[in-house]
Nucleic acid binder design. Structure first.
Lengths: 220, 220, 220, 220
DNA sequence: CATGAATGAGAGTTCATTCAT
DNA sequence: TATGAATGAACTCTCATTCAT
């Protein structure tokens, strides 16, 4: 754990000696970034404030100039994701006109995000963490929205009138678990994963792409 | 948390002063049961050995007569589940002759288990835990086996020749997330959940049961 | 404590942008006043420099432009009281010609001061402080002087040739403890308290005013 | 402060390897004794739990096996004094038949106790503590009782019908301040102090013992 | 000068773990 | 073997103090 934290440690000590406010914003960033990494690595429950600080070049007291607890950092991460990631996802879904487009939008956007930000859904390879850290703020952020969008899609006839909560759960579950499977492969192929998930949801297992390990998909 | 642990506390203090070996095995049981409850409540990462002890009528030192760490308790829980739950699941899958039967076996067995043992997959409603505790030993146990069975099913032509890891991930993800959704409803309807998941995997969203909130599904 | 400090907070933020020296002296004042309030509230031992700063509109660093520690503020408070309060007390004592006048001067001046500046001898009603804050700078200031005056009074035959230290201690003790008792009553009646203490010292308990709760003493 | 704590440090490491319960009671004692010393030295407000621990040969965590906070130690000290010291004081007062006896009982018992347990009312010679530590548990204990006894004495005609709160305050104040004065002298002469205070209360300053510095009282 | 962010020592407290009983 | 007190490392958080702006 010691070694791992050292690895996570922010070493970019390059502090532009510019203005005070700049440095302050920069430190906030440093802490948030460190927190994201550490949460992803150890999970929210197991990480301590000190873990976050240790993943930072800052002094321990400094943390408390920015956040009052690890909970508050977490919320901040969540909030900033809400501002950054979810709008795109949502917009993609709302603009769709066919079920295919809707489902595809969900998975493509999701897997693309995960592939681009591996830490966000980091598969925990450590001893006891067994599955995708689903409680990572970046990822958690859009659940409610997805359900709302599914309900809206059902309302406008885009999706069949089925149980929206179950459907949301199914999509979320597939997204997370497949994201982990995808990340275990190098290179991660977001396209293939999205194609697989989309096919599953559109036609069931019978429609799934043949063969496929995600590296050299034969389809479409 | 104090109050919650008190609630979790094992109160069956009745220790039959019978045989030594019995008492010994009984303590092991007491610890395992307490650990299962506490893991389910707080998550693996956040629970401490002390939490487990406190959920027990035993003394702190006694814990170490049985386990060396919370990790070891976790593995023990995993192991005993492997012995108890997985064989049934596995057998159901191996005996199937159609894709329908295979998929249905997976989800029916899973949701039935979750409905019968809510604590095993307890959706954490506490502050920061957002999703199903996927790292609960009872649940984690059969993943590898499912993948192996899927590979076997593909090999014998029961399932289409698709990516077995992705398919496993998709089934696992759907199972966990839907289990959580199911548990939020009272009464939990394992049948409805299994029907939904099975339909999804067999025919995609177009095949999903209409309407349905899990309580009074319209489809047969 | 948070709330209490807020209450103590100096809000007169109106800083006339006039002269520099003025502002400087003003800050010193602001800090001293805040320190007096906070010392009175929490006691010297328990208050921190931060507490003082928080009771101020100033920045933390500013404190150190004026004082090097809470100790130094304390001494400053003491010093300024020495200049302001003690001369009056002393003068009253030195002018007396009878024991009655001497004793009366001591207690009247003291209780009048306490009644007029309740914070100076604030009876701490907080958790653990049980008695008058005897270490409050305003109050501590004149002890030595009282003893000197008592010695002088003995020397000039005004007081009997008794142990001056014990007599000083007795007067001081009565003054402080009675001040606290007085402050617990509303309205504080400095006259009654002074009358009581004076009578005690002049004639012992046999001479004490009858009845009397300090509110409506029967004796004139 | 470092050095002082070392001096206060309990070095009697002689732990009779007897029984568990014994050791436990012994540790409780060790902590209470250390706390008494440290409270007396630094005052309640300024002492920290760690100060208490440092005045002990015990480990930091051990403190919390016995008390939850410094407040709780304080209360425990208070309670045990209530059991040990106050009954004697009280009994002495209740048995008296004359004002002389009553007043004398108060001061003799008090000064005798202080002389025998110097730490209880330790005059703080440290930088900022100016007066007797009146908030020391041993001493604080009997205040309420004294007032009750005074009220009872007034009721049965033993004391004149004066303000009981003021009289209590006066006696308490004299007792504390004179105790400090007494302690500054070597050897402390409890008899002389009691005589002085008693005379003051019975006859006022006119009745005070002549001369007297407590060392070679000319008495009666 | 005033500011207030940064610092790291140190406070209060809990923890995993040991070991005498 | 069960117990639970002792331990000291480690955690959360606050403090006094500095110093770039």
């Amino acid at each position: 754990m010691e070694a791992e934290l050292r690895r996570l440690k922010e070493t970019s000590d390059i502090r532009i000696p510019g203005k005070r406010a700049q440095a302050k914003e920069q430190n906030r960033r440093v802490i948030l970034d460190a927190a994201r990494r550490v949460f992803a690595e150890f999970g929210y429950g197991a990480t301590t404030v000190r873990d976050i600080i240790r993943a930072t070049p800052l002094a321990s007291g400094t943390f408390y100039n920015y956040f009052r607890s690890k909970e508050e950092v977490f919320q901040a991460l969540r909030d900033e994701t809400a501002l950054a990631v979810r709008p795109a996802l949502r917009e993609a879904r709302l603009k769709t006109e066919t079920p295919e487009a809707f489902v595809s939008a969900v998975f493509q956007t999701f897997f693309a995000h995960v592939a681009a930000n591996p830490a966000d859904a980091l598969a925990i390879t450590r001893k006891h963490a067994m599955h995708v850290r689903v409680d990572t703020p970046e990822i958690v952020a859009g659940f409610e929205e997805l359900r709302e969008d599914i309900e809206a899609a059902i309302a406008r006839g885009l999706l069949p009138p089925t149980d929206p909560e179950f459907l949301t759960a199914a999509m979320v579950g597939v997204a997370f678990e497949m994201a982990k499977a995808m990340q275990k492969r190098a290179p991660a192929n977001a396209e293939a994963a999205a194609r697989f998930a989309t096919a599953l949801f559109l036609g069931g297992i019978a429609a799934l792409p043949k063969q496929g390990n995600g590296h050299a998909p034969s389809t479409h």
